[in-house]
Design a protein around this nucleic acid. Structure first.
Lengths: 357, 357
DNA sequence: CTGAAAGCGCTAACAG
DNA sequence: CTGTTAGCGCTTTCAG
């Protein structure tokens, strides 16, 4: 008996059948067995059946390490999420995008490997992981302007798709990304407030080292180029940040307070509304509020329900995955992708009017 | 020239240095190079230096596939999340636990592979993935009573830790899990409402095929064994479910409506509060509300702020990871773990009183 | 259409 | 302490 005796019920299946044994049982060579396992192209169907029987009988599952060693493919992609301010996960935005990605990948039997960057030191670890060639490609989120990741994947030549337009100057190949029309959405939001007759429209921005935050601010400025600088407060996409920014806006103004505020995320809008409530200001009578995201929770459960800019978040996730997958396919075929007409995608952002404005 | 000519800036580093070349450059054998790369135990420090220089010079990174083929370890664990009702990601609960797990694993340089089960068919895919031996262990969340996953990992003998007590009868070894004191927390919540003088305390439960939901309901019944059955409504942990359940409770009662409600998740509490607001019922004057989770968003941003049962969500995630890691270490040492005194952990749940009750 | 042979890059005995 | 020798399990030319 070579198997160690178990002390408990669950048998640790330390030993797993190999292709060799499948071949032996089916009475064919390893090579043929391999062909069948990989689709069976060019194998007599009679033999295919025998091999598949053997596979079932033995419960054979290919060893991915061995396969990867040979093929240099892993059928896995990394999703890299940097959350320096531990923001990502309190925001449903990312979660929904992740779901879209998961759906799309699992349809192609490609594994999703989630890499969380929590502390600065993790960048090196993630870099090593990617450099080791664990995965065939990467999806990278919420890149800040000083983010080391783009340089890393660029240096590695790892096929990558970004979530949100990366704000850095492209050095090598043009980056592939999926983004919302942040600027257009912001314009629509601000225009809406103006059309409602609001005179002093404030904005609570996201962190200004991120392209999405900058773009939304640009949209605001497009519509209100002459706006009082005191109407702009920087937030960080979190509820707490929205809270702080709103308080700041109110404290600044004296009695010339804003009569509307465009918060660049729903979470910040929620924070802002909490402050307004505390100060006895009614929404929308005294101050109209518009958010951005429509990532369910915040917008729909706020009272009053939040007017916001909707993006198809899950769809963006799917798109990212799809883009990467075709890029990988092309790479495998020896094409770099850019040549094949792969290009960034910008999805529309649509204003949804509810009671808060 | 064997390397394909690049059409674009980014060089695809198709070729990567192997241990062989590191050894050659350092003037030692592969074996020695390998030893150095793996810590250098028992190698003259003089040679270690030479090898490390070669590693740096060449930018060598070990090929994980080759290594796994040999060692049968992957330094990766799977996190399996089944979200049949697409609930998981709208709930900050899971996200925070994930963060705890990520922190703990990255401290041990163990990779986190996220497996999302979205549709019924995905179970087979996840099963195959786990069976293939991609990972050394698994963390499994939100097991329902008919969940096929426990049987799968059990059959595979894959070291596993559950998030939340699995509600099935243990067949093999006793399952390892990390859970909150759901029952105790629920008792505290209901007792609190009773002490506040509430007479008709309703409960909005979670999905009753999940242990956590059942345990919370048990806590309610512990305190109010004689409660009117009409005061119990089944929810599903989502805001929308809470909404429906609350409406049901109000419609049932006639003018004998509840004067308090214990919602078994914050999200459901938020839904319930929305319904109460719509019907012109004040919180807490007319109906007191208590939630469960304290997963930031919902509880803190509700108005009025929600009284709820707090659990250390991130800590639970860390604990799960830690438990699995020590279990893996033991497995590697040839021990099954149960023998070594590894046991489930139940963390405390503490009532946090805010304005809603 | 099938089999034989040659590794992919690495680690783990086993000698020296 | 270090090198030599065998593979891990799989795919993939290349003959037949």
């Amino acid at each position: 008996m070579t198997q160690p005796e178990e002390q408990h019920g669950a048998p640790v299946r330390a030993w797993r059948p190999t292709l060799q044994e499948v071949a032996a049982l089916a009475g064919v060579s390893r090579a043929t067995a391999s062909r069948v396992v990989n689709g069976g192209a060019g194998v007599r169907s009679e033999i295919q059946v025998k091999v598949r029987q053997a596979v079932d009988e033995l419960g054979y599952v290919p060893n991915p390490a061995a396969r990867a060693l040979m093929t240099r493919r892993h059928d896995a992609v990394a999703v890299v999420v940097a959350e320096p301010e531990s923001r990502v996960f309190s925001d449903p935005f990312f979660a929904r995008q992740l779901r879209g990605i998961g759906r799309e990948l699992s349809a192609s039997a490609v594994q999703l490997v989630l890499l969380l960057v929590t502390e600065a030191g993790d960048y090196a670890q993630v870099g090593r992981y990617l450099a080791a060639g664990h995965v065939d490609g990467a999806l990278i989120f919420s890149v800040h302007n000083d983010d080391p990741l783009p340089a890393i994947v660029d240096g590695l030549g790892l096929p990558t798709v970004y979530g949100g337009r990366p704000g850095w100057e492209p050095t090598g190949a043009a980056p592939l990304y999926v983004d919302t029309d942040n600027r257009g959405g912001a314009q629509a939001a601000v225009r809406h407030l103006r059309e409602r007759g609001r005179q002093r429209i404030a904005v609570i921005t996201g962190p200004l080292d991120q392209a999405s935050a900058l773009d939304r601010l640009s949209g605001y400025r497009d519509v209100l180029p002459q706006a009082d600088p005191a109407l702009v407060a920087e937030g960080d996409f979190t509820a707490e940040g929205g809270r702080r920014a709103m308080a700041e806006l109110l404290d600044r103004g004296g009695d010339d307070r804003p009569d509307a505020v465009f918060a660049c995320s729903d979470l910040m809008a929620a924070g802002a509304m909490a402050v307004l409530a505390e100060r006895g200001l009614r929404v929308p009578e005294d101050v109209a509020v518009v958010g951005f995201d429509d990532g369910d929770t915040a917008a729909q459960w706020a009272s009053p329900p939040l007017t916001t800019v909707r993006q198809d978040i899950e769809g963006m996730g799917r798109l990212m995955a799809r883009l990467l997958l075709t890029r990988l396919q092309l790479t495998f075929d020896g094409n770099t992708g850019a040549a094949a007409g792969l290009a960034p995608v910008v999805t529309p952002a649509e204003l949804v009017v509810r009671a808060s404005s």
